[in-house]
């Protein structure tokens, strides 16, 4: 379980997250909405442990451990992983090597790349000259190799062409154990109960909702979490009236 209690975060001398409370139980996936600059990326980066996001109050726990002051790699080892919106590129580090790093040891990189239609990129330097959509597939391939328990996705579908959006949606669904596949002899209820993976997905377009079912939706507005509700409902509302409604909830 991920548990965030009354979290306050500063970036530079700016307070970017205020009084954040969030609970993601094993098996749950949450969707995070919010206008540009509201702090969505900051929240994910804070959970991942980026040191420039300074926690000035509150607490983050994961699997019962207080991780508020853990380093990034300690959190990674504890089972937190992130798919970045704009990851840095590293010259001279091949994508294949990066996937191997993610897996820790032993993963069939070519099979993995096949699944994500990414075989042609394995010998290329990681993220160097990748298009928006290629970055998403690369990030998903890394996360699949890493296989964390809490998966943080920062706008995984933005910039992805229609052809690949199905691929990305289904892969995220699989990673979060939310495939719509019917397994003979198993009820939907049973499948739900067997889920362990936790997900937090930032979406701007809402496309991801067509592929991944989610338990909860939240809106981050001006550094404050508001409008906890059914994600599809929230998205519908945002489409109709924009984020204006959220101002009221966020006060």
């Amino acid at each position: 379980m991920l548990l965030i209690e009354d979290l306050q975060v500063m970036l530079g001398d700016k307070e970017i997250l205020r009084h954040i409370d969030l609970e993601i139980k094993p098996g749950e996936t949450h969707i995070l909405f919010g206008p540009n600059g509201s702090g969505k990326t900051s929240l994910l980066m804070t959970i991942m442990g980026y040191p420039q996001y300074r926690v000035t109050a509150g607490k983050i726990s994961f699997k019962g451990e207080d991780i508020t002051h853990m380093t990034i790699n300690e959190r990674a080892r504890l089972g937190i992983g992130m798919s970045y919106q704009r990851p840095p590129s590293i010259k001279g580090l091949k994508t294949k090597q990066m996937v191997e790093i993610c897996s820790g040891n032993g993963v069939d990189v070519s099979a993995l790349a096949d699944r994500l239609n990414f075989s042609d990129f394995l010998e290329r330097d990681i993220n160097v000259g990748f298009s928006g959509g290629e970055i998403k597939r690369s990030e998903l391939m890394q996360l699949t190799a890493q296989n964390p328990d809490l998966l943080l996705f920062d706008e995984p579908e933005s910039g992805v062409d229609l052809e690949n959006i199905v691929l990305i949606g289904n892969t995220i669904g699989e990673l979060l154990q939310r495939e719509h596949k019917h397994i003979p002899g198993k009820s939907v209820k049973e499948m739900k109960e067997e889920r362990t993976k936790m997900g937090l997905i930032i979406t701007h377009t809402g496309f991801i909702l067509d592929y991944v079912t989610a338990d909860m939706g939240q809106v981050l507005y001006n550094g404050i979490l508001a409008c906890k509700s059914n994600p599809t409902e929230i998205f519908k509302q945002i489409k109709e009236v924009g984020y204006e409604e959220c101002v009221r909830c966020a006060i």
Partner: peptide
């Protein structure tokens, strides 16, 4: 670049391992 080190750390490497990986890439 610090962001490259942190990126690798979020994939499970320690800071030193991340640095070594970047240096290797630089020389490769």
């Amino acid at each position: 670049a610090q962001d490259e080190i942190l990126y690798l750390m979020s994939r499970g490497l320690t800071e030193d391992e991340a640095t070594a990986t970047i240096v290797r890439g630089f020389l490769s």
